[in-house]
Every structure is written in C-alpha cells, then in structure tokens.
Lab assay of single mutants.
Amino acid sequence: MAAAAAAGAGPEMVRGQVFDVGPRYTNLSYIGEGAYGMVCSAYDNVNKVRVAIKKISPFEHQTYCQRTLREIKILLRFRHENIIGINDIIRAPTIEQMKDVYIVQDLMETDLYKLLKTQHLSNDHICYFLYQILRGLKYIHSANVLHRDLKPSNLLLNTTCDLKICDFGLARVADPDHDHTGFLTEYVATRWYRAPEIMLNSKGYTKSIDIWSVGCILAEMLSNRPIFPGKHYLDQLNHILGILGSPSQEDLNCIINLKARNYLLSLPHKNKVPWNRLFPNADSKALDLLDKMLTFNPHKRIEVEQALAHPYLEQYYDPSDEPIAEAPFKFDMELDDLPKEKLKELIFEETARFQPGYRS
C-alpha cells in the first residue's frame, strides 16, 4: 500500500510507478496490472468513496492506442447498470505532455475469474450472474457493438453480487458484411471463450460470437473449470467437437473457408456428449439454455433477447427493466489503419471533457 500523499506533496508512487492523480484522489492501494497499465484503488475526496484507477501508458504502440481509444469512446457513450462506466479521466493539459491516461471507475471487490478459483456457486448465484451478463449484453448488442472478449476476468463483482462487464478494448461495431482481413492475426481474445466460426472463417462476425462466450462462462460457473481449455488453435476446435459432436452437413455448409471445411470433413465422426453427463448436478433449465448458447452453427445460436426470456431466468426476466441503447454506435473511421500519432490526438480530444474549465 502506498503511503497517503500529504496535501501538495506531488504524485504518489505505487510499486515504483508514478500515479499522478492528486489532489482529488489519494490513499492509493495496488490492485493489479494488465498488459499496459496498473490498477489501484484510491480515495475520492470529492465523492467520499474509494474508486478504481487504471493507469494506461499506450502511446508507444499502435495496438494499445487503438484499444484505449475504443474503450474510452464506447464506455463514455454507454450507460447501463451492468456495464462499468467511466467516472473521470485524468491526463496532462497538453498533448505533448500526455504520456499516461488515468481512467477512474467504480471500485468492484472482485471478478468472476477470482471468485470461481475459490468458491463453488449455488444455482441461485449462477442464475443471477447469468441474468446480469445477458442484461448488459442486450444493451451492448442493441448499440450494434460486439464485445468480443467476454470471459470471467472481464466480469466485475461486488459483495452485493452486482455484476458489471468491463474491458471493451477489443470491441467492434457489428459488421457481418465487412471482410476484416487479418482478423485472426489481430484477434487476441482469450482462445477458450472463442466461437468456432472465428477459427473457421475470417469473413465478418456477428453478435452470436458473444453468446458463445457467455455459454462458455455459464459452463464454467457450473463446474469451476473452463469447458474448452484448448492449448492452441486446432486443439481448441477438437475440444469443442469432442463435446458438441461432429457438425451436420448443414452446419458445414455455413463454413465459407474450404480449407477449414475440408479439415472438419477429414475428422472421424464424434457423438455429442449429453450435458447432464458433463454437469450431473446442474439445473435442467440451465443445461437447456447452455445447449442453445453453445450451438456450433452461429445462425442457430440463441440471441440475447431470447436467452433473457428463457425459463431458467424467469424469476428475473423483465423486458421493461432491460434497457437498450438510445442509438446504434458508430465509429467515424476504422481505427485499425491509423498511425499511433493520430490515435493519440483522438484520445486527447475524447478525454477533453474531463479537463478543468472544459467548454463543449
């Protein structure tokens, strides 16, 4: 834990890192770190609560700039109880001085990944967590956004079992017609939660990839272990087919990539493993919904509104309290091709509203 900075004593240090967030945020305490930044909790002297502050230093890398800009653009436009918001952003007053960006968010005690390492969940908890994931996802999908990296560590939890989806750095506007060349190379989302079509096709992607990830998360809540822990690309596919069985001819016809289709045709026939054999203690309604989410063919996979209306979630289902976005989200430009200098300018502009004396 960093010592509390005395008023006016300059930035606090946390594990050798400068955290320049005073005077409003003090009493910093280390939480963890990701690929390009550290997260601390801090005391907000204005709202009198502890908050989470993520320090991001992305400006050396085009990919990190892209992810940072995506996350900020999306989260500043989203407003939903099951999606983490941005409360404040701290950065230098000029673009030349801006080396880091500090993002202030609600402090959540833990995440689903940490929880599943230590606790076996009751059916009631599984049901409530799944409902909140789908409630947040309904809003995301209504904005025409794909999260693309749903996994237990991106689901934040607090002691009252509130759940918030975080990390929109890989999110995209849904565009089933656009052929994202190089899709697989830039697709760094965790393999275990990846839909089979991501490994088999490169053309376009749809909201059904997020539903697949939610199915993987439900299976993990039922058993405290990942359902498809593939060691590499082909191993991942083999794990999936080992449980779902061989795809039907109709399902194979959806695979545009001939090499991928021929690979699947070359494999020995596998039978589907019954879900109640894998999860003998699970609620039968939970397994019915799991089956509809972990469907090989993305066109037959359940959609988020149908999933919310499934009998497993009937005690929570309330369409009048499951809000959607006001308007579909649009990125003005494809960020993939922009140089990091341009992305830095866009991050600077996007964060201006939090600067003292800002006038829109």
Rank of each mutant, 00 (worst) to 15 (best):
N123W: 03
F279V: 13
A219F: 09
G22Q: 06
H178F: 11
R77P: 03
E334N: 12
K344Q: 00
T351D: 04
Y128H: 01
M108C: 04
C40E: 14
I72V: 03
E305P: 06
A6Y: 05
E322I: 00
G16D: 00
N47T: 13
I227H: 06
P247H: 14
M199T: 00
F59Y: 14
P323G: 07
I211A: 08
L346T: 10
K292G: 07
A327S: 13
I255T: 00
G8V: 15
M13W: 00
I84A: 07
G215I: 07
R77L: 15
K231F: 06
E334P: 00
F279D: 02
A2Q: 00
N27S: 00
E81P: 03
D88P: 05
D88Q: 13
Y317R: 00
A174K: 09
L278S: 05
N45K: 15
L116C: 00
G245E: 08
P93W: 03
Q249Y: 07
L155P: 08
V104Y: 10
I347V: 01
S29E: 04
A282H: 05
A286M: 01
W192K: 04
H269S: 05
M293L: 14
L146G: 04
T63C: 12
I165A: 02
G204T: 09
G37Q: 00
L252I: 03
Y358S: 12
T159P: 11
A286G: 05
K231H: 04
H141C: 10
L338W: 03
S360R: 04
K138A: 04
A325S: 13
Y312C: 00
I324R: 01
M98G: 09
D106T: 01
Q236C: 02
I86N: 13
N123G: 09
Q119D: 02
S41Q: 04
I243R: 00
D336I: 06
N257S: 13
F129C: 00
S122L: 12
P196H: 14
D162P: 06
I227R: 05
D124E: 14
A3P: 09
P196E: 09
V304P: 08
L252A: 07
I31Y: 07
Y316T: 09
N262L: 04
R359F: 06
N154Q: 08
E322A: 15
D321W: 02
I347C: 10
K203F: 07
T118R: 09
N271E: 06
E109F: 02
V51Q: 03
I83V: 11
E349K: 13
N238E: 07
Y205S: 12
H141S: 12
I90R: 00
L244S: 08
D177W: 05
S223T: 14
G242V: 04
N27C: 09
K330W: 01
L69E: 11
T94I: 12
H80A: 01
E197T: 08
E71Q: 12
P247A: 01
A4T: 12
L294E: 06
N262S: 00
L75P: 13
Q105H: 13
D162V: 13
S202E: 11
N297V: 08
K138F: 02
K342T: 11
E109I: 00
M38H: 12
L163I: 04
L338R: 01
V273W: 02
L200R: 11
S266V: 05
D167M: 03
H141P: 12
K344E: 00
G22T: 01
K231N: 14
S284A: 11
S266D: 08
L346R: 04
P176T: 15
V49W: 10
M333V: 00
M13Y: 04
H141M: 09
T63Q: 14
G8W: 02
E109N: 04
S266I: 13
T181Q: 09
K292L: 11
M293H: 02
L76E: 06
L278C: 08
S320C: 07
D318K: 06
M293A: 02
W212N: 05
T185F: 12
R301H: 00
T68S: 15
K114L: 10
Y43R: 09
L75M: 14
I89W: 11
A4P: 04
E341S: 11
E341C: 01
R50L: 09
K117G: 08
Y358W: 07
L121I: 04
I53C: 00
L116M: 13
G215H: 09
A35D: 13
I347E: 10
N276A: 12
G37S: 15
P196Q: 09
L157T: 08
I240A: 03
Y263V: 10
Y131A: 03
R70K: 05
R194H: 08
N257P: 04
G215M: 06
D179L: 05
E197H: 05
H178I: 08
D291E: 12
T160G: 02
L265K: 04
Q355A: 04
Q355L: 15
R194T: 11
L150M: 14
P11Q: 11
K203W: 07
V145Q: 06
G136D: 01
I53Y: 04
P328G: 01
P298C: 02
H141I: 05
A307Q: 01
R359A: 06
Y43S: 12
L264V: 07
G34S: 02
I133Y: 07
Y317C: 11
H310D: 02
E334W: 03
K73D: 12
W275K: 06
D288S: 01
T68K: 11
D210V: 14
S142R: 01
T190M: 09
P152G: 00
H239S: 05
G37V: 14
Y25W: 00
L115G: 03
L121H: 03
H178S: 05
E349Q: 01
L28A: 03
L289I: 06
N87W: 03
M108T: 03
R261S: 11
L200W: 13
P280M: 08
K285F: 08
P23S: 10
S208N: 11
L150P: 12
F329D: 03
R225W: 01
Y317K: 07
K270V: 04
C127E: 07
E326V: 14
N87A: 00
T68V: 06
H310G: 04
Q105C: 11
S248I: 00
N82R: 09
E71G: 13
L218C: 08
L121W: 02
L200T: 05
R148V: 09
C127W: 00
A171P: 08
K340Y: 09
K164L: 08
L264Q: 14
Y30C: 04
H80K: 02
L121K: 07
F129T: 10
M13C: 01
L156R: 06
Y358D: 09
D321C: 05
M221L: 15
Q17M: 04
D175P: 07
I90E: 04
L222H: 06
N262R: 08
K342S: 06
K330E: 10
L294P: 04
F228T: 00
L258W: 06
G169A: 12
S142A: 01
S29M: 05
Q17Y: 01
M38Q: 12
N271W: 02
H178N: 13
M13R: 12
G215A: 10
Q132F: 06
H310T: 01
K300W: 07
H120G: 08
Q315S: 09
G245H: 09
L289Y: 08
F129A: 02
F228Y: 15
Q17G: 03
A6H: 05
G169L: 04
H180Q: 14
S213V: 11
V188A: 10
L287I: 07
G22D: 06
F19Q: 01
Q119I: 09
I74S: 05
V18I: 13
K340T: 06
